[in-house]
Each structure stands twice: as structure tokens, then as C-alpha cells.
């Protein structure tokens, strides 16, 4: 088929070229992309920044690389943190109703996410923490879900130098009789994790580590343990502690090699390995 020349190259006058070139800035925001990924439940499978690199959306590779780790932490934390709030609510509800353990799907209805008021809410100061929660499945009973127990080998864990991973130095999860976290405690957890995440976004890995240390002290069996561990890896990488980051990541991966947390840990390491 004969390929005509583009109008912008031949046939358009200056005014028309101006119109056509104004479309060059058309590009989605990273948040829009992440939001869609979250709605599809595939966020962890699509490395952050991949699309902008692949499609030449104007970001340099360096910028993408720099933002990638922080953005991954951001996405994970926000999606999972909001999910944890849901988990907490489910836990409280489950306790009140004495329902038997069951799989709880907490996928948010797409039309709810498209609600203009929801968009407005996300555009405020909490925007950094407010992409919609990824579709989540909570395959544990409520009483376990709020304080995940994923680590069978506690002796190995206690030997790990993992200062930024709140659950890492704790013994096995809480006793069955341990009280469920209240909504305020989940809020506090989210605040601390948010502090770490924002510090990472600023490139301040040390402050992120400090915030995670506080988190670990206050919530040794916190509901946001996985998020804290992943942020810990990112913060260690940010502060140049690559070996310690690898140790933590190896621990995360070993615990549940095919899980989402392990996939995220791998992604963080891979991203940091890129030149």
C-alpha cells in the first residue's frame, strides 16, 4: 500500500502543524496507569516505569530508574495499606458476627473508583497515598489476616540483620488470643508506613529506615508487615546497603517464593541492578 506523507511533514500550513503538534504532550500520568493496573489486579506483574520507557512518554531512563524503586514502594504501600484497612474492618466485622473463616474478596467495584468524588478525594494532599486499592484476596481467617504469620523459621529470622523490616525480629505471629488491632491502630500503622514511603519518594532512605524502625517498635506484629518489609528493602537500597537489602529480600522470597511480596522484592532488586 502506498504510504502517504504525514500532514505535519507536507501539506499542512504552520497553523495546522501547530494544532497537530499540540497533541504530542498527550500522555497518561503514572497514577492513571497504576490505577488501571490495580483495577486489573496485575500491578505487581507490570514493573513500574516500564510503560513510560517502552512508549517513550518523555521520561528519561535515568529518571525512570530513580523513581522506580520509590514508585514501587508507593504503589505497594498505598494499595496494600488501604487493603489492610479493609482487612481490619473485615476482621472486626468477622469477630462481631462470629462468622467462620472464609476467603474474602475485597475487590472494589470499578464504577466506584470512577466516581468523580473519589477522584477529587485522591487529588488532595493524600494523593500520594491514594491510588485505589488493588484487588485483594484475603485467604486467611480474619484473626490471622490482621497479623500475618508467614515465617516458619524463626531462628533464621532472628539471625538476620534486618533493621528495616518490622516483623523480621519478632517471634512467630501473635497468639490466637491476641486482640485484633483496632481501626485507630491501623491508622497509626498507615501513618508510619506513609512516612517511610514519603521519605523514600524524597530520596531520603535513612529517614525511611527510621520510620520503619519506629513501625517495628510499635507494631511488631503489624498488619502492614509485608509493606514495611518491601519498603525496608527499598530504603536499604537507597542508602547503599545492598547486601542487607539482598538478605531481607532473600528472606521475603524464601518465605513465600511465588507470592506477590516475593515478586515485588525481586522487582526491587532487579531494578536496583540495572545500570
Amino acid at each position: 500500500m502506498k504510504q502517504p506523507e504525514r500532514l505535519a511533514d507536507a501539506g499542512a500550513d504552520e497553523f495546522e502543524r501547530g494544532l497537530l503538534s499540540s497533541s504530542h504532550a498527550d500522555a497518561p500520568s503514572e497514577r492513571a496507569y497504576q490505577r488501571t493496573l490495580a483495577s486489573l489486579g496485575v500491578g505487581l506483574l507490570v514493573p513500574l516505569g516500564a510503560a513510560s520507557v517502552a512508549h517513550g512518554a518523555g521520561s528519561s531512563a535515568a529518571v525512570t530508574s530513580k523513581l522506580g524503586v520509590a514508585a514501587l514502594g508507593k504503589w505497594l504501600v498505598t494499595g496494600m495499606a488501604l487493603g489492610a484497612v479493609t482487612v481490619s474492618a473485615v476482621a472486626v466485622t468477622g469477630r462481631a458476627r462470629s462468622t467462620p473463616p472464609e476467603r474474602v474478596a475485597t475487590e472494589q467495584a470499578p464504577m466506584q473508583r470512577r466516581d468523580p468524588s473519589a477522584t477529587t478525594a485522591r487529588s488532595g494532599s493524600a494523593a500520594a497515598l491514594a491510588p485505589p486499592p488493588a484487588p485483594r484476596e484475603v485467604p486467611r481467617p480474619a484473626s490471622e489476616a490482621v497479623a500475618p504469620k508467614r515465617r516458619p523459621d524463626t531462628s533464621a529470622r532472628s539471625a538476620q540483620p534486618v533493621p528495616a523490616t518490622p516483623a523480621s525480629s519478632s517471634p512467630d505471629g501473635p497468639e490466637a488470643s491476641e486482640p485484633l488491632p483496632s481501626v485507630p491502630s491501623v491508622k497509626r500503622e498507615t501513618e508510619l508506613i506513609g512516612t517511610a514511603q514519603r521519605a523514600l519518594q524524597r530520596g531520603d532512605g535513612q529517614s525511611a529506615l527510621d520510620a520503619l524502625e519506629r513501625y517495628r517498635a510499635e507494631f511488631p506484629h503489624g498488619a502492614l508487615g509485608p509493606e514495611a518489609r518491601l519498603l525496608g528493602i527499598a530504603a536499604l537500597l537507597r542508602t547503599g546497603q545492598r547486601d542487607r537489602a539482598r538478605t531481607v529480600a532473600a528472606d521475603v522470597i524464601a518465605r513465600e517464593p511465588t507470592g506477590q511480596e516475593a515478586a515485588a522484592a525481586r522487582a526491587l532488586l532487579q531494578k536496583s541492578d540495572r545500570p
Partner: peptide, 12 residues
């Protein structure tokens, strides 16, 4: 995931 990665910007 591949669908989104390869087409999101184009569709947007």
C-alpha cells in the same frame, strides 16, 4: 499484564 503494559499509553 502484558495487555496493559503494551497498550495503556496508546489507548489513553
Amino acid at each position: 499484564a502484558a495487555l496493559a503494559r503494551e497498550n495503556f499509553h496508546f489507548i489513553w
